[in-house]
Amino acid sequence: MGKALYFEDIVDGMEVPTLRKQTTAVQLVRYAGAEEDFFEFHINEPYARKLGMPRQIDQGFLKNAFLAQLMTDWIGIEGRLKKLACQYRRPSYPDQPSLCKGKVTRKYEQDGQFLVDCDVWIEDGEGKVHTSGTATVALPSREALIRRIEEGAPD
């Protein structure tokens, strides 16, 4: 895991490092097993075609997991993912790149927590967004840490 990310490191408009994913038909089966979601249009290609889809489609919750990882990879072990919302705007398919991206929209202190809001989304290989939403993370604050040490330091 990377270096710890602190609240003071955040600036508005800052980009979250892109997380690259590319699902495969096998991964969709593995995910179906892990989530115990056996909707067939994710795992049975002929069935998906019968429904008029070009092929089986990625699970929404799998893309949700990618966006969660986008944030947890970025914030590191000391950060916490507080909120994650997304909409599945159009289907995505195995063997296509999914580029998970994010951008800081706001940083603020609330109830003693140091929070950062981000827009998050997933693009296919052509830059078209198929999933988009928002995330909120809590980060450690260097200044708060120093304040606490100073206040609690024995003289």
Partner: peptide, 11 residues
């Protein structure tokens, strides 16, 4: 026919 349209988590 059903699809997942969106999810909103609070952790």
């Amino acid at each position: 026919n059903g699809r997942n349209a969106g999810t909103e988590w609070e952790f």
